[in-house]
């Protein structure tokens, strides 16, 4: 009976011994590249009696990126790369007896340093009535994209960039007048990605990669 107990005890120790050994030896270090997505939107409240108007809105890019990192419990030092992915606009509020068609550009500039403004978006023939509530992707222009990406690089290097998006009107149909004011709310959004290099340990029990 005693011999049986010894055998049972010894046998039950095997998985524990294996575990202690395997737990220490079979963990492998990895630096995995995680991608975070975020979207920064600038709402523009338009109320004009002329077709010539500009509407600025600021994006605290540095603070927004700080929040993104904090939400994911990572730090600026973990960032490998960050860049602009896409842009879009959406008419949020529009209520009028007739439709308006607008065109123009959205420029981007840096407020923390002297850079820009550069054209980011050219929009043409936007029907406010038919675009209401629809998020529309837009083609982005090289100069504006380069400015935003440079701002992201400066953030990685320790800066705190602030962007200003400005709507610069072009043609408006029909012409706004004091008695028929162009009134609507829309927003421009920038989608960005941040690539992180995160160290982790994984079990790769039987090897291979």
């Amino acid at each position: 009976m005693k011999r049986k107990k010894v055998v049972i005890t010894a046998a039950l120790m095997i998985p524990i011994a294996l575990a202690l050994g395997l737990g220490g030896c079979l963990l492998e270090d990895r630096t995995v590249e995680v991608v975070l997505n975020d979207e920064y939107c600038a709402p523009f409240v338009e109320d004009h009696d002329s077709e010539n108007y500009t509407t600025p809105k600021d994006i605290e890019l540095g603070e927004d990126l700080d929040s993104l990192l904090a939400d994911n419990e990572v730090s600026r030092e973990d960032i490998l790369n960050a860049f602009l992915v896409s842009g879009s606009y959406e008419v949020l509020e529009f209520s009028h007896t007739h439709d308006w068609t607008i065109s123009g550009v959205i420029t981007v500039e840096r407020l923390d340093i002297s850079s820009g403004p550069d054209t980011l978006v050219v929009y043409s023939t936007v029907s406010l009535e038919s675009e209401l509530g629809i998020k529309t992707p837009v083609d982005l222009h090289d100069d504006g994209v380069a400015l935003v990406n440079a701002a992201m690089d400066d953030y990685i290097a320790g800066g705190n960039p602030v962007l200003r998006l400005t709507v610069v009107s072009g043609d408006v149909y029909t012409d706004p007048t004091p008695s028929d004011r162009l009134q609507f709310v829309w927003e421009a959004c920038l989608n960005v990605q941040v690539i992180l290099g995160l160290d982790t340990e994984i079990f790769n029990f039987m090897g291979g990669s």
């Binding site: 998985p15 990895r30 630096t31 995995v32 590249e33 995680v34 991608v35 790369n81 860049f83 602009l84 992915v85 896409s86 083609d139 982005l140 222009h141 090289d142 504006g144 994209v145 380069a146 990406n149 990605q193 690539i195 982790t200 994984i202 079990f203 790769n204 029990f205 039987m206 090897g207 291979g208 990669s209």
Partner: peptide, 28 residues
């Protein structure tokens, strides 16, 4: 483990996340 980045219009880029570089899987 490395992310894959593709280029788009106007100098934009899009990144696909990396994996964990694991060769095997086991259950005990």
């Amino acid at each position: 483990t490395g992310a894959v980045i593709v280029d788009g219009e106007g100098g934009t880029q899009f990144a696909f996340p990396g994996g964990f570089d694991v060769g095997s899987f086991a259950i005990m």
